[in-house]
Write a protein that binds this DNA or RNA. Structure first.
Lengths: 141, 141
DNA sequence: CGTTACGCTGACGTTAACGTCAACCTCTCT
DNA sequence: AGAGAGGTTGACGTTAACGTCAGCGTAACG
């Protein structure tokens, strides 16, 4: 009757997961097959823990940044430290630092791209207004 | 008057493009087939103009942000104003603004992800240090 | 007891974004 | 003239990340 603090009832069925994260069952099963998730089994059915949910959040986030599932799988190991030895954690840290560098570079480039697009939009706006354009300005990589 | 020697590099062969942008010929032909590039033809051969190069820069940039080629193709139309009528430019602007919103959201989330990863790295570092006495040699700010 | 709902496991289909390969031009150089 | 370098067009193969479908189990519901 009394609920234990953050221990037992913290599991979700596949449908609940799908609703909560806007993914299909197929996707979750696929991620499990790829060892990105590891839900516990109640008989044959999957029960997703908060660990699975945390990982799924990171997976979906990673995807939005263009990382492959394999990329993500490796980075994920950093986030759960239990069950991995010192060498594994070490490796996970290296990978994570690489990932971090990539993401920071990505952010820098994103800023450029945003500024670029804004400028182009502004130009296009004045262009539409005046119906007469100037030379296009482009910044190469 | 003949053409300026400096302006000789107006067009590039496919090989030059490949070297300059680190892509394969197949990729460039593929992009042409998808109407992302439109090199001029010298007989049967392709010659890529600065317009193609500008577009290619944007294409590769877009890809790094996880956009599909089709997404990119549509946004690209904003960048060249010639050959499109008012309605088309209008539509391109709308698409570009959507893209812009996506990218700004992406930037915000990227900040979160970076902070997250940094925190996790820091935690993992202290964890490693506690366990084995190895000092964190280089931590990010 | 049947049926409806949810879940599982293969297994094959699909789309995007190219890779790979064969077969063929077309210059240039020796 | 022959060899090679660089280019071209199909056409088929590949990988990632799922979609779709068939067939089966089971648990509850009426």
């Amino acid at each position: 009757m009394t609920r234990k603090p953050a221990a037992k009832a913290e599991v979700m069925t596949i449908r609940e997961m799908c609703a909560a994260y806007d993914v299909t069952p197929r996707t979750l099963r696929f991620y499990e097959a790829k060892e990105l998730l590891s839900p516990i089994r109640e008989g044959t059915r999957r029960l997703f823990t908060r660990r699975d949910r945390a990982r799924l959040t990171l997976i979906l986030r990673g995807k939005r940044f263009g990382f492959s599932l394999e990329d993500i799988r490796q980075t994920l190991d950093l986030y759960d430290r239990d069950g991995s030895d010192a060498a594994q954690r070490q490796r996970a840290c290296e990978i994570a630092r690489e990932r971090l560098a990539i993401m920071e570079a990505q952010r820098a480039e994103l800023d450029v791209a945003i500024a670029d697009l804004k400028a182009e939009l502004a130009a296009s706006a004045t262009n539409t207004a005046t119906q007469r354009g100037t030379a296009p300005s482009h910044a190469a990589e």
